[in-house]
Write a protein that binds this DNA or RNA. Structure first.
Length: 875
RNA sequence: GGGAGCUUAGCUCAGCUGGUUCAGAGCACCUGCCUUACAAGCAGGGGGUCACUGGUUCGAACCCAGUAGCUCCCA
C-alpha cells in the first residue's frame, strides 16, 4: 500500500484552503436562510498572531463552520483595528529610526507615513489567520479607519453630542508623557513599585518661640513641591493644632502657602501632615477644589518641568526628583528618607509612568447610556459565558465614570469640532457646516480650525458590529437588517468593559437592540507555569511554527482540549501533540478501510452487531455533543468527539468489523463502515477542517460532485437511540475486557485462542455476541453451561459467570486468593448497604426509588457472593 | 480597602437540583506487546482524607459557617 503511515497535513492545508476560497464557501450574502453571524474582534494592525488570537479565532471558526454545516447562512466578518496609540507609537519609532522626528512633520505628512505603514504591515495578522483555517468572509474585511467606518464614527460623535452626551471639560486625566496623550482609566495598568518616601521640612511663617519653625511632610514626589499650594493637617490632630491659620514656605522656592485643615488627612500616615499639589494629584485636586486653592502646573506635556517650577526648568520629572532631593538635603530640609512601596499607574501602550494632569478633554457622559446596557445582561438578553462575569459587568456598569474620549494623537478619527479665532467652538461634520453654525450663532468664522485631537480607538470599535454592515449610516440596509443582532461574540474578559460594554451601549443607542446574543469569554493563554504568555517573557510559542510542526488541525485540537470556557488555559505543546496524534489516528483508520477488498459475501454476525451498536452509539454521542455546544462547552464537545472516534469507532467498531488478514469484507459491512466514516468526517470538520476535507474527497467515498465538500456537508443529526442496545453492548465489552485482563495477568499471548464457557443465569443472550467476543478476545468454542468446567478460571460480569479454559495455567492457590478477596470486598459492600437499610430514618426519609436501589444492591451483592462461594468450594 | 472567584489523581480539568451510574476524564506514569490501519500505536494497570475545621442531614466533593492559600477585577 502506498499510503503513508502518518498523516502529512501540509499539502492538504494549502490545497483545501485555496479550494474553499475558490468555491466561495466563506462568502455570505443575505438570503432566506437563518443567519448565523460572528464579527471577529478586530486585531490591532500592529499585531502579529499570538496564542490568544489563536484560541479566540479557533473557537470562532469552530462555531461558524458548525453553523454553516447546519444549513445556516454563516457569516464571519473579519477586520482590523487601527489601534490609535499603539500604531502611532510604532510609526513614530519607525520614523525615528529613519532619523525623522514627528515634530518636524505636519499632520498630513505623518498620516501619509502611517498609512504607508498600515498598508505594508496591517494585513499580516489576517494572512496568518488563513493559515489557521479561518473561514471568514474575506470580501467583508473591514478596517476601523477606512472611510465608511470613520464616517460612522464621526456621525456617532455628532449624534451623541447633539443628544447631550458629549461635553468638554477640564479634568484630571491620566497623562502618558511618552505617548503625549490622555488615557482612559482602563488603559492604565497599576503596579506595586518600590519607591522612596522623602521627609521634607517646610518652614512655618509667623512661628513664635514656642513653636518649631518648621513642619515635616512625607512625599514620594519631591519634584512636585514647587507646585504645592497648601499644607493640610487634620483638624483632630493635636500635634499640629498650633499651626492653624498660619502659612508655610515651599522649600527651595520660598513661595508662601496656607496651612489648611481637612479630615481627609490620615493622621497615621507619614507625619500626618500633607502637602497639597492640585495640579499633579487627583486627591489633591479635589482637596484644592474644596478649599479654593490655586492650581500651579509645573509640568510640560512630555514630563519635563516648565517655567512655573522656577528651578530645574526643562529637566525630566524623574531626574528632577533626584535633583530636588539633593537640593533639599543640601539646604538641610531633608529630614530622612525611607523605602516605601505603592501602586503606580503605567500606560498600557508605552509603559510610561502615568502623570495625573489637568487638561481640557472631551468626555462622554455614561450614566444614562450604561443603564440599558446593564439591563441586557441582567435580564439575560445578552448572555455572558461563563456567567460569573455578570457580576463583574454589573459592578463596573453601576459604578461607571464618564469616558475620556479624546486622544492627543494624529492616527485616528479627528474630532469634528471647530474653533474660531475667539476659541469659541461648534461641532459639525464639515468646515462649511461649522461656518454656518458659527454664523447662525452670530460668531466669527475667522481663523476657523478643526480640533486636533482624535477619538479613542474604542469609540470606533464600539460601533464594529454595526459599522461592518454600514448600519449606522444606512440603518435600513439589507445587510444590517439581516445580520444584526449577531449571534456570538468570542473575546477576552480583559476587554469586557473596553469593548463589549461599549458595543452594547452603542448597539442599544442606534438600534435599540444589543449587538449579539452570547458573549463567550475565553481565558488567558498562560504557559504551564501559569505565567501569562508575553513577548517580553519570551514564553510564547510562535503559532505559525506550531502549525508547521503539528499541523493546523492538531494545533486547533490542542488549543481546544486545554480550554474550558472562561478559565485560563495552561498551554502545553503536549496538547498539540495529542491533537496531531488524533489526526494521525483518523488517518490510519482511513488507511484500514481504504485497504479492504470488497466481496459479495454475507456479513458476519460480529459485523452486523457492530453496525447496529455503532449506529445507536453515534446518536447517543451526537446528543451529548449537541448539548455541549449548546452550553458553549467546546472543549467537552471535542473530547466527546475524540472518544467517539478513538474508542468507539476505532477500538471497537473497526476491530469488530475488520476482516482477517487478506480476506475480503462483505459489501454490507463495507458500506456501513463508509457511512459511519463519512458521518465522523462531518462531525470532526469544525474542529479539524483540513483532514476531514482531505479524506472526504478520497475515491473511497466514490466520486464527489462539484461543490460536494465536507465544509458544506449536512452536519449529522443525532437520531434516536436505544439504551437497551448500548447496555447490552457494554456487557459484551466487559466480557472482552475481563478476558484480556486475564490474559495479561497470566501472561498469555493474545495469539493463543482460549475456549470460553458461560453460565448465563441472568438470561442475557451471549450467544448472539459469540462471534463478536471470539473476534475481540480471541476465544473459541463459546458454549453455555451450568457447571464450572475443570481446568478453567472464572470471572463474573453482572450475575453471569464466565469460564476460560486456561489448561495448565490454572493456579488453584492464586484463584482461591483472588476469589476470597472479591468475596471480602463484596461483604464489606453488603455491610454498608445493610447499614443503610436497617436505619429506620433512612428508610423513612429517603425517596422510594433510592431505597429500592439499595435493596437491589443488596440482592446483587448476595447473589454474587453465593456464586463466588460455590466457585471457591469447587476449587 | 471594596467586589468576584478558585482549592478534586503527578498535570489540566469535569462533577447539573445532596442518595450504588459519586469519587470521574484526558494527558503523564507503570507492565506486557514491533498482533500487516496506526509505537504519533495496541492491551492491561496503579494512583485522590475531593484545601482545613466545625455544622446541617438518615446520608455531604456538593448546603452553611469559619480558617488557610491562590487568582482576578475595582479603588
Amino acid at each position: 500500500m502506498s499510503i503513508p503511515k502518518t498523516y502529512n497535513p501540509k499539502e492538504a492545508e494549502d490545497k483545501w484552503y485555496a479550494y474553499w476560497l475558490k468555491e466561495g464557501f466563506f462568502r455570505s450574502v443575505p438570503d432566506d436562510r437563518e443567519p448565523y453571524t460572528i464579527v471577529m474582534p478586530p486585531p490591532n494592525v500592529t499585531g502579529v498572531l499570538h496564542m490568544g488570537h489563536m484560541l479566540n479565532n479557533t473557537i470562532q471558526d469552530v462555531l461558524i463552520r458548525r453553523a454553516r454545516m447546519q444549513g445556516k447562512n454563516a457569516c464571519w466578518v473579519p477586520g482590523t483595528d487601527h489601534a490609535s496609540i499603539a500604531t502611532e507609537a510604532k510609526v513614530v519609532a519607525m520614523l525615528k529610526e529613519q532619523g525623522i522626528s514627528k515634530k518636524d512633520l505636519t499632520r498630513e505628512q505623518f498620516l501619509e507615513y502611517a498609512w504607508e505603514w498600515k498598508e505594508k504591515y496591517g494585513g499580516i495578522i489576517l494572512n496568518q489567520l488563513e493559515k489557521l483555517g479561518a473561514s471568514c468572509d474575506w470580501e467583508r474585511t473591514r478596517f476601523t479607519m477606512e472611510p465608511e467606518l470613520s464616517d460612522a464614527v464621526i456621525d456617532t460623535f455628532i449624534r451623541l453630542y447633539r443628544k447631550g452626551y458629549i461635553y468638554r471639560g477640564v479634568r484630571m486625566v491620566n497623562w502618558d508623557p511618552q505617548g503625549r496623550t490622555a488615557l482612559s482609566d482602563e488603559e492604565v495598568n497599576r503596579r506595586e513599585v518600590n519607591q522612596t518616601l522623602y521627609y521634607v521640612r517646610y518652614a512655618v511663617k509667623g512661628g513664635d518661640s514656642d513653636t518649631p519653625a518648621y513642619l515635616t511632610i512625607a512625599t514620594t514626589r519631591p519634584e512636585t513641591i514647587m507646585a504645592d499650594t497648601a499644607i493640610c493637617i487634620n483638624p483632630n490632630d493635636p500635634r499640629y493644632a498650633h499651626f492653624r491659620g498660619k502659612t508655610a514656605l515651599v522649600p527651595l522656592i520660598n513661595r508662601e502657602i496656607p496651612i489648611i485643615e481637612d479630615e481627609y488627612v490620615d493622621v497615621e500616615f507619614g507625619t500626618g501632615c500633607l502637602k497639597v499639589t492640585p495640579a499633579h494629584d487627583l486627591n489633591d485636586y479635589e482637596l484644592g477644589q474644596k478649599h479654593n486653592l490655586e492650581v500651579i502646573d509645573i509640568l510640560n506635556d512630555d514630563g519635563t518641568l516648565n517655567a512655573n517650577a522656577q528651578i530645574l526648568v526643562g529637566e525630566d520629572r524623574f531626574k528632577a526628583r533626584k535633583a530636588v532631593a539633593k537640593l533639599l538635603e543640601e539646604a538641610g530640609l531633608l529630614e530622612k528618607t525611607e523605602p516605601y512601596s505603592s501602586q503606580v499607574g503605567f500606560s498600557e501602550r508605552t509603559d510610561a509612568a502615568i502623570e495625573p494632569k489637568l487638561s481640557m478633554q472631551w468626555f462622554c457622559r455614561m450614566q444614562d447610556l450604561a443603564q440599558p446596557a446593564l439591563d441586557y445582561v441582567l435580564n439575560g438578553e445578552v448572555k455572558l459565558i461563563p456567567d460569573k462575569f455578570v457580576n463583574t459587568y454589573r459592578h463596573w456598569m453601576e459604578n461607571i465614570k464618564d469616558w475620556t474620549i479624546s486622544r492627543q494623537l494624529w492616527w485616528g478619527q479627528r474630532i469634528p469640532a471647530w474653533y474660531n479665532a475667539q476659541n469659541e467652538w461648534v461641532v459639525a461634520k464639515t468646515e462649511d457646516e461649522a461656518k454656518s453654525l458659527f454664523e447662525a450663532e452670530r460668531k466669527t468664522t475667522e481663523g476657523i480650525r478643526q480640533e486636533d485631537d482624535v477619538l479613542d480607538t474604542w469609540f470606533s470599535s464600539g460601533l464594529w458590529p454595526m459599522s461592518v454592515f454600514d448600519g449606522t449610516r444606512h440603518p435600513e440596509n439589507a445587510d444590517i437588517s439581516y445580520y444584526y443582532p449577531t449571534n456570538d461574540l468570542v473575546t477576552a474578559p480583559e476587554i469586557l468593559f473596553f469593548w463589549v460594554a461599549r458595543m452594547i451601549i452603542f448597539g442599544h443607542e442606534f438600534r435599540g437592540k444589543a449587538p449579539f446574543k452570547n458573549v463567550y469569554l475565553t481565558g488567558i493563554v498562560r504557559d504551564k507555569q501559569g505565567r501569562k504568555m508575553s513577548k517580553s517573557l519570551g514564553n510564547s510559542p510562535d503559532p505559525i511554527e506550531l502549525m508547521e510542526q503539528y499541523g493546523t488541525d492538531g494545533v486547533r485540537v490542542g488549543m481546544l482540549l486545554s480550554s474550558p470556557a472562561g478559565n485560563d488555559l495552561m498551554f502545553d505543546v503536549a496538547y498539540c501533540e495529542q491533537g496531531r496524534n488524533f489526526a494521525n489516528k483518523i488517518w490510519n483508520a482511513f488507511r484500514l478501510v481504504k485497504g479492504w477488498d470488497v466481496a459479495s459475501i454475507p456479513a458476519t454476525p460480529a459485523q452486523r452487531e457492530a453496525a447496529n451498536w455503532f449506529n445507536h452509539r453515534f446518536n447517543q454521542a451526537m446528543a451529548e455533543i449537541d448539548e455541549h455546544f449548546a452550553n458553549y462547552r467546546i472543549s467537552d464537545a471535542l473530547m466527546a468527539t475524540y472518544k467517539l472516534v478513538w474508542d468507539d469507532f476505532c477500538s471497537w467498531y473497526l476491530e469488530l468489523v475488520k476482516p482477517a488478514y487478506q480476506q475480503p469484507i462483505a459489501r454490507e459491512a463495507f458500506e456501513a463502515t463508509k457511512g459511519f466514516f463519512e458521518s465522523i468526517l462531518k462531525l470532526i470538520h469544525p474542529f479539524m477542517p483540513f483532514i476531514s476535507e482531505e479524506l472526504w474527497h478520497d475515491e473511497l467515498f466514490g466520486g464527489r460532485a462539484d461543490g460536494d465538500c465536507c465544509i458544506v456537508a449536512d452536519y449529522p443529526n443525532g437520531g434516536a437511540y436505544d439504551d437497551r442496545v448500548l447496555v447490552d453492548f457494554a456487557l459484551l465489552q466487559q466480557v472482552v475486557s475481563e478476558i484480556r485482563n486475564l490474559r495479561n495477568a497470566k501472561q498469555l499471548s493474545p495469539k493463543i485462542t482460549l475456549p470460553l464457557a458461560i453460565n448465563a443465569s441472568s438470561g442475557t443472550d451471549f450467544i448472539r455476541y459469540a462471534d463478536s467476543i471470539e473476534k475481540m478476545a480471541n476465544v473459541s468454542d463459546i458454549r453455555l453451561t451450568s457447571e464450572k468446567p475443570t481446568g478453567t478460571t472464572s470471572f463474573l460480569v453482572g450475575k453471569d459467570e464466565f469460564y476460560v479454559a486456561v489448561a495448565e495455567n490454572v493456579d488453584v492457590e492464586a484463584e482461591k486468593e483472588r476469589i476470597t478477596k472479591e468475596i471480602e470486598y463484596l461483604n464489606g459492600f453488603l455491610k454498608s448497604v445493610n447499614a443503610k437499610l436497617s436505619n429506620e430514618r433512612f428508610v423513612q426519609n429517603a425517596k422510594a426509588e433510592i431505597v429500592a436501589n439499595e435493596q437491589n444492591k443488596k440482592a446483587d451483592a448476595e447473589t454474587k457472593i453465593r456464586i463466588l462461594t460455590e466457585n471457591l468450594a469447587s476449587l
